[in-house]
Amino acid sequence: MQQIERFLLQLRAENKSAHTLDNYQRDLLSFVAFYLTQNQSDAKGDTQSSKNGDNSDQAWSYQTLMAEPQSVDWTQVGVRLIKDYVMDCVKSGLGARTLSRHLSALRSLFGFLMAQGLVQTNPALLVKAPKVPKPLPKSVDVDQTRQLLEQPIDGWHAIRDQAIFELLYSAGLRVSELVALNLTPGLDGLAAGTVQVRGKGGKMRVAFVGTKANQAIQAWLSVRGQKLQPEQSEQAVFINQLGGRLSARSIRVQLDKRTLQAGLDTKMSPHRLRHACATHVLESSGDLRAVQELLGHANLSTTQIYTKLDMQHLAKVYDQTHPRARKNQTHNE
């Protein structure tokens, strides 16, 4: 406990916030409570002192440790004990973000102890923190999406950007997939309403393209050659002013401009358009597996071995549910 107090004093000298100090103290005492409980259980097993229901064991907790500080032999704390602590926290329902903070506190403490020559290694560095789930972006409703996409189109920039935004939303593409999209084989299936993109891990997948997106792409292809020099043979579908492949950063900048043009009081991004595609199809169809196939989610690869949806079924779900697909052609026009 003395080492923890000295560690916290150093953090205070480094002008760490009171909030950080309180969290680190609580997190470290939580680990100490686990450490003492484990040692107590081991001693109990060795001596067989707990017979006939003897309940003399100390109930270690943050409160009891604050009232009765205990000594800890940090040289005896190894990777196995810290992993057991992590598992205990997970079983108790501790969130990934909070548990990551606990491990950060332990790593920092062991770093301090090593600097003081009190321990030789930092076992907490060998324990991985659980992944903190990334929250999905806030969805954009159909009306907002339509407002974004149905803006006046003037000039080759606007024609290109219209094709980009329609494709991001229609096919649910990642911006990296769109940037890497080539004329061949990417647009070989455009007449049939599909594009071929290279997804995560370099795997090729087929994505569906609705009528509005298809029309926007055709409009762009009709003017794309204006920005190419006679000697250029650029294969990228979407090119910049100089005839080179368009960057993801440029797409984000143009999307910001379109959002302002549409008067939308929200922050848009290519990923929000991808998420909107998934949300709108799911809301209409209720078919989560179809949506996951449409987006090419890699984390479903194991499941897909057993339950692979065929392209005909995916096309049917897409055409019947996506707001910019064929069933909405008459309504949108």
Results as ranks from 00 to 15, higher is better:
V79Y: 06
F7E: 00
N332I: 13
N328E: 12
T279G: 01
L148V: 00
V175W: 02
D319T: 02
G296V: 01
P270I: 00
A298D: 12
Y85M: 10
S285H: 06
Q70D: 11
K212L: 10
A248N: 08
A105S: 14
G243I: 04
Q229H: 10
R258M: 03
Q162K: 06
S170H: 08
L255S: 07
A192D: 14
E283D: 11
V281E: 01
Q116N: 11
I251Q: 11
P133I: 05
M204S: 14
S56E: 12
R101N: 11
G93N: 02
G296D: 06
A276N: 02
A290T: 05
R174W: 07
V140K: 06
A192E: 15
V142G: 03
D154R: 11
Q3S: 09
Q196F: 00
S61Q: 11
H102F: 15
K316M: 12
R6F: 13
Q10M: 15
F238Y: 15
G117C: 05
L21P: 06
K91T: 00
T330K: 12
V142C: 14
T307F: 14
H322E: 05
H157E: 13
R249F: 14
I217N: 01
Q235Y: 07
P135K: 09
S92T: 01
L148F: 03
I164T: 04
R174F: 03
A207G: 04
V197D: 02
T321S: 08
Q120A: 15
